[in-house]
Design a protein around this nucleic acid. Structure first.
Lengths: 251, 251
DNA sequence: GATTTATATCTCATTATATGAGATTTTAAC
DNA sequence: GTTAAAATCTCATATAATGAGATATAAATC
């Protein structure tokens, strides 16, 4: 059993996760309803986040992301080669392939999207950063399962519920294990409509020198685009991107 | 008395504040010594920050700022007009005047530096973001005092200790009150070696429609540069910048 | 390579902080 | 101007956080 986490800190960041391109300000009421919190508690967290400068209040009860958040982000870019490498690499890949790209990492809550690059399309699929991906029904999720030790993998499969999102979703444990074996053998994973009927994805690992997964990368889009030739092309491009990102991890 | 803050969240951000351009990774030991924390506690906080993705561990016990921190920073830039306005404005000002510029806001811990722009000089003065400025011995600190209601100001002056940094520091309460009256009358503050013998600064307020201080801005540098003519020139430029920033607050 | 030292990680009894009901204040809606 | 909704504040109670000590791992030294 690993270190229990700090619930207040988790909650603080849950509040920060409510901000998005579509939501540039939040209120006590929004926090209460979205996170099922008491008003006094929500108010206390917002006031604390304001105190440290990552949000500010420009009108009573209305909060926006603040200057220090911007500075932390810029500092992350300046001080972490991995951080400064990932976005340009996935932006370029999205442009080259004309499909969306996503990066994910393992959190205790699941496989979490930590960076995305949009396709330059009028109608595009995207995933919101912070989203937790389904282990059994996404390309990246399957990659993470495939890289687990057998015991941990089996425990995780028991723990998750193999929701039948649609007829293509793998819901039988033996079928899932066989699929994970295939993923392991071929070194990449695909998702052909398993999570959403019309969405496909290809994912590859970014592996450490010790053979552990650091991150996973995927390209995803409308399923009809993902013919075998395109999948192979995408896989090669993703592996290339993975090599660049892996190198930045060790700078 | 206002809302008590959440100590865990404050502590989490204190840990994040240990990162800097000079320190691109931190460890449990660094957190323990810098913040006077128990190792188990430090470890728990680092693990929690990693869980939310704002830091990551690329080697055992070594943490760097992570992808989600970068994304929060970018989101702040995209969603908050104030945030996206401030840095370009102060960068331009620093270039025009060839002196450093700083932005501060009020936190319960004091006047806190939240943005800076460096002078384009071989040898330059700068202040680290997050630094708490002395109320009685800095231009911005005096501005914040000058804008307080008399009762609150008197309470604050009693609370702070009027440290005699050097012979130019104002350490007598009556002299400080007289100085604050001057600051209020003229609408800007100066610091001529009060905090550091060779450093001078000019500060102006960014005031809300309701007359409350939102932020303060200052230009600072080597004292010999701050002749009366230069101070006046700087003041005008700062007031111009303040108008732009104020406008962005209401977008 | 073996040993020692330092650092990181984990556990759980104890301690300290966080919570939220209810009251009050402020703002928005009518 | 009145009412309703939202925000803010307080403090008794509940819950989570802490940190000593143990264990594991890595680094430093020989």
């Amino acid at each position: 059993m690993s270190t229990p986490l700090n619930a207040s800190l988790l909650r603080g960041f849950s509040i920060l996760s409510l901000f998005s391109d579509q939501r540039n300000e939040i209120s006590v009421a929004v926090v209460c309803s979205e996170l099922n919190l008491n008003a006094a508690t929500a108010h206390r967290f917002l006031t604390t986040l304001e105190e440290v400068g990552v949000i500010f209040s420009h009108a009573r009860g209305k909060y926006s992301l603040g200057l220090r958040m911007s500075e932390y982000g810029a500092l992350a870019q300046r001080t972490s080669p991995l951080v400064s490498t990932v976005q340009p690499v996935i932006d370029r890949l999205a442009m080259e392939l004309d499909e969306a790209v996503m990066v994910a990492r393992a959190a205790s809550s699941g496989v979490m999207c930590v960076a995305t690059a949009q396709a330059n399309r009028a109608i595009a699929v995207n995933v919101k950063i912070g989203t937790i991906l389904d282990y059994h029904a996404t390309a990246q999720g399957k990659l993470w399962l495939a890289h687990m030790h057998a015991e941990q993998r089996d425990r995780k499969i028991k723990q998750i519920s193999l929701k039948p999102f649609n007829p293509d979703t793998i819901i039988d444990t033996n079928n899932l294990l066989a699929e994970l074996e295939r993923v392991k053998q071929q070194g990449y994973a695909t998702n052909l409509g398993e999570r959403e009927p019309d969405i496909a994805a290809v994912a590859v690992p970014v592996v450490s020198k010790k053979g552990e997964l650091i991150l996973t990368l995927s390209v995803f889009g409308m399923r009809h685009r993902f013919a075998p030739d395109f999948i192979d092309h995408v896989r090669k491009k993703l592996e290339q991107a993975a090599r660049i990102i892996r190198a930045s991890y060790y700078t």
